[in-house]
Simulated scan of single mutants.
Amino acid sequence: MKEYLVELTTTVPEGTDPGEVDRRRAAEAGRARELAAQGHLFRLWRPVGEQRSIGVWRAEDESRLREEVLGSLPLWPWMTAVVTPLQSHPNDPGRTD
């Protein structure tokens, strides 16, 4: 699988019922755990004081990442994503190739 740095920003549509937001956020947490167990979500961070997340995600290609992996997130319809393909650095201490 290839690795991608993904910046996700969630914007809840104005007027959305707070109960719907809570339901989707709870479902999002569960789906993130599933994607981690499947090897698609490697790490996820939220910069302090910001409403965006930055993570390392894995998929066969960028199309599958967007359509099948990120597209399966309950908050995906409210998200924008910036996807950057990654490659191993020669000085990476965790490099295995």
Rank of each mutant, 00 (worst) to 15 (best):
M1E: 05
K2H: 13
Y4S: 00
L5V: 11
E7P: 05
L8Y: 11
T10W: 00
T11V: 03
T11E: 09
P13T: 02
G15L: 00
T16M: 00
P18D: 00
P18W: 01
E20Y: 04
E20L: 10
E20H: 04
R25I: 06
A27I: 11
E28C: 01
E28W: 08
E28D: 08
G30Y: 02
A32W: 10
R33G: 00
E34R: 10
E34N: 10
L35K: 02
L35Q: 05
A36M: 13
Q38K: 15
H40G: 05
H40P: 06
F42A: 15
R43W: 07
L44P: 05
L44Y: 05
V48L: 13
E50V: 10
Q51H: 15
R52W: 12
I54Q: 00
G55H: 06
G55L: 08
W57C: 05
A59D: 07
A59W: 08
D61E: 14
S63W: 07
S63A: 15
R64P: 00
R64F: 01
E67R: 15
E68Y: 02
L70D: 08
L70Q: 03
P77F: 06
P77K: 04
M79K: 14
A81P: 12
V83K: 09
T84C: 12
T84P: 01
L86P: 09
L86C: 10
L86T: 12
S88P: 10
S88C: 04
H89E: 13
N91L: 15
N91C: 09
D92F: 07
P93D: 11
G94E: 13
